[in-house]
Design a protein around this nucleic acid. Sequence first.
DNA 1: AATCCGGGGAC
DNA 2: GTCCCAGGATT
Length: 363
Amino acid sequence: MSTFANTLIHWQRRHGRHDLPWQNTRDPYAIWIAEIMLQQTQVATVIPYYQRFIGIFPDIETLARASLDAVLALWSGLGYYTRGRNIHKAACLMVAHYQGRFPSNAAAIEQLPGIGRSTAAAIAAFAYGERCAILDGNVKRVLTRYFGINGYPGEKKTEILLWEKAESLLPQENTHDCMATYTQALMDLGALVCTRHQPQCRVCPLRSDCVAFRENRTAKLPAPKPRKPLPNREATFLLMIDQNSILLEKRPDTGIWGGLWCLPQLPASIDLQLCCIQYWGINAAFIADLPVIDHVFTHFKLRISTCLLQVIDRSNNTLEEQAWVTIDEALNLAIPAPVRKILMEVSSSAKFFEMSCQPLSGY
DNA sequence: AATCCGGGGAC
DNA sequence: GTCCCAGGATT
């Protein structure tokens, strides 16, 4: 029989990592330091920090005796400095209350500051061979793919489901070697095979039972963190028509649509088009509101209202960074997509055609 | 449930 | 530039 766990254990012995500095020890202190450093931090980054730290603080007592400043100095550059503070605090706590001994099971380990459920389980599995499940970023990725779980792993409901799966997959055989190898196998599979980008499914020992592989959805799982809803902004474009010509403005080189030609733009808050006409030295009459366009940027949404105006007098208009062009000419300039959309629609509308061929008279 | 912590690597 | 990483604590 070949269970999930047995498959992984066999794979680990042949293809897993065996020479990381914190492997090949059952010292809970050394494993603890490594697991804390590895929280949200990649292996290659951790290695030199870990070796330096263990060299200077080889055990709980030495760490507890050291000053917090000395501990944080060794942490400098690793980030998440609360981890360093918690390590020092926990070492002092173990000296004060546990006779300098590391707690002997996952539940007790989890009571230490800076240690949550997954880290406690990892330490207990590696140091004591305790039969308990980890659920770090690697395992979440492996399990969401293996079971085809669609929810975002940061979501509570999904996380509960993932913990249930992680528990249910634990090896039945409860030996130290079995648990340590299995736990390392999950991490190594996630790090070496079931990677976020371009997972190596061809060499994956689990692929025959992997939902994501079978359904070709590895690129879609795990679901990415939902993006915060984009803030909404509004703007008004003015489409000013003078016979066959419309007014474009060249935008500043920096910022949105930098250096592109654009319809004159007003903040949506400004009340009426006619009071703003003075800004361009143009007298114009309102014709119509054009359909609203919603445009999405990476960091906000822009709702664009466009106001169609008939130019009455543009003799006071100065042409700095501005151009009067035909719509066909405009469509051959560097214009943003929303402007192109507006101009395409207007140029094909009968109303515009009629208007531009027979300019309104009497003003 | 959302947010914060933080530097670095992959892309 | 974005997204993520051997997560946990706080609100």
